[in-house]
Design a protein around this nucleic acid. Structure first.
Lengths: 217, 217, 217, 217
DNA sequence: TGCTAAGCGAGACGGTACGTCAGGTCTTGAA
DNA sequence: TTCAAGACCTGACGTACCGTCTCGCTTAGCA
């Protein structure tokens, strides 16, 4: 969008002209980019709790007050940094089958939570206990994801793989939840096997006898 | 009382020093109970991040150093407090059907995450991002739960409701994960309807046509 | 380790007979000697300010309370330790002349203040600013000295070197004061030359013309 | 120098913009004066050992961190406070005779050590045992004094009251040392009589017979 | 081109909490 | 019964970051 074009422009152009353009928007300090980078670096290095505004300012070579002028506290600052980075972007698979798509999605999610750079970010989104800026970001993130995933489910319905009245959010929560549970709360790896097993568990009856007992829906 | 009776025993146990008997009880300070209470109260009031050792000491009517003598930092302190409280206890349902049992479990989980007193605790377990004492506690908690839940699944297998090779951990992660996702990351309520839907989604095929499309595993 | 075996050995050997006797006198704990030693060692190592009861207890292999039972605080403890040691003893010279005796005394004083082991002690006596136990000790020390030095002055009077009504305290204060000033407050060395100059300055008129300028006293 | 001229300037400048002056000096916190006052008051009230940074901060109505921002510890803080106060200033007498001058000097010294306000200061200078910031101050103080006193001795030499090769430091040490000894170590008063006796002892031969041996008195 | 307003660096500040050290007191078991 | 051991409260330590403030310089966009 405008953001990406602006950033690419500013990186190539000289500081005198580039900064002017950024200031025009009035959306942030001149050193916004360095500040965001420093924020993410420090988040990755230290985790959310030990991320401090002071350290960000120092690493960005910026005065502390400059940061406070633009963001009220650590949470919003990190939020902004995350939004600028493309770190949380997902890309919606289209493998031709629901199962393939879901496995791809779950794999993405696992890599997000596990990744060296993205893992700390994912963990940070939980740090506030759902009550702060980061939690807002998390909610937005998951809501966005869901919106982007809707076509995927529409295709599955069109292919006849999915009942039209199925709630995509429920499917996503089941799959993503299992991944998060396993990685964050159980601290176990989420290998390809696991990802497949999760998706299959959602797509098919788990109990062998269950189907015969209860019949098709 | 217990201490004095122990003391007679102690003379035989170790020869070098006698004074250690007091230490036998040595699992905590005299005011352990008050400290634990204060810790949980403050956790509930302020959340994990704003829970401070200083405030705990003050509310417990105890000196800060007393706390530091026994627990190195906030994390372990909270961990101990949680272990003493019965807050995280679960009670394993036995309704006669797997579905009933799982709904009961999921309901418990939802109440745990949502509860006025237990919610903050649940959130706190995520606060460290999986890297601290609290995360240890969380892991232990979920591992314990799983152990306790095994009989439930054994009964289901015995009743023919579940394939013998089903991984209980996977089922639990799916169900619990969906609950956590919904409540914590989406900040949506987890009503009874939702809990049932989650369990049903795991127990039955979600896609109507799925069985016909894909062969048996 | 060696310590525990040693202590157990010593406790068995001496505790039955030795400790009882010492306790009978009630003049101190069984480990008085080790405590005193530790006290002086630590005084020498760290100076008065950084001498702590805690460290003394640890080095003496004794519990802190044992020390507090017998001495109310650091000051009296150090006082006792100094009294036990012969560190502050002086020996009264008798060289045959007042000048020789005073030079010997002043030299002793200089060595006391300067000495590796005795220096910290001398400094400690000033640390309380004259208001604590150590100051009491200092006063006692100087009063004692003066008493012991009286025969020296009596001999000088007898030899006709000194007016009978001369105040020995004044002489001693002049000489000792100059030494303390130079060493402690000016941090300069007090060599033999200086000591002689001090004594001579007290024994003879300093101003050459003085007598002619001023009338009789 | 620059400071005094600056301060006089600031007094004339307008009251509204006066706060900027602070940056000019940059030599201390805004509340330096209150901090210094509080420091000296507490020194006088409690003595050096029981003087705490925390109490100074509280009395000065300043945060503890403000003090630590400017002075690393108690010693340097007190040093600064003493230097700002004119408490340790001396004024060099010029009575026309060496004896009169020395008596005046010794009297000043006695009042300094004895004074209600200055006494604790004098004692504090000894508290560190010669090894800390205060001792530095003490050394500087005595060195300064000596420099200021040199003209006094020059005048005495010019008047023919003193041999030109007399060491002023020795005289001063003798006199000041006797005063300190008497007051601090013997805890005796230093009245006018004593001061005169000290000076006379230094100026004239002490031993009666000595004079006959060495020439006219 | 010069004026005005915003951004900014600099750095001091009050404040909360940290985690630690040492001073003394108190309880309680062992000799 | 005395003594020793360890837990305890208390007060202070020195530090890290917080979030706020003022000041004066720079810079950018409008007049």
């Amino acid at each position: 969008m405008g953001e990406s074009s602006t950033s690419s422009t500013s990186s190539t152009s000289s500081s005198t002209s580039g900064s002017r353009r950024r200031t025009a928007g009035g959306t942030g300090p001149r050193a916004a980019e360095r500040i965001h980078e420093a924020t993410l670096e420090l988040l990755i290095e230290r985790g959310y709790q030990r991320l401090t505004v002071e350290a960000v300012a120092q690493r960005a070579g910026v005065n502390k007050t400059t940061i406070y002028r633009w963001w009220p506290s650590k949470g919003p600052l990190l939020r902004a940094a995350l939004l600028r980075s493309r770190m949380l972007d997902i890309d919606i698979p289209d493998t031709g089958t629901l199962r393939g798509d879901l496995i791809a999605l779950a794999g993405q999610m696992a890599r997000l939570v596990n990744g060296e750079r993205t893992g700390p970010v994912a963990r940070a989104m939980l740090s506030g206990g759902g009550h702060d800026e980061l939690a807002l970001l998390a909610r937005g993130f998951f809501a966005d994801r869901l919106e982007q995933e809707r076509p995927l489910f529409a295709r599955a319905v069109a292919r006849g793989e999915l009942a039209p009245d199925t709630d995509p959010a429920l499917l996503v929560d089941l799959i993503a939840g299992a991944v998060w549970m396993r990685i964050l709360l159980r601290q176990l790896p989420a290998e390809e096997d696991f990802v497949e097993a999760v998706v299959d568990a959602v797509l098919r009856p788990i109990g062998v006898e269950l189907a015969s007992v209860e019949g098709p829906r």
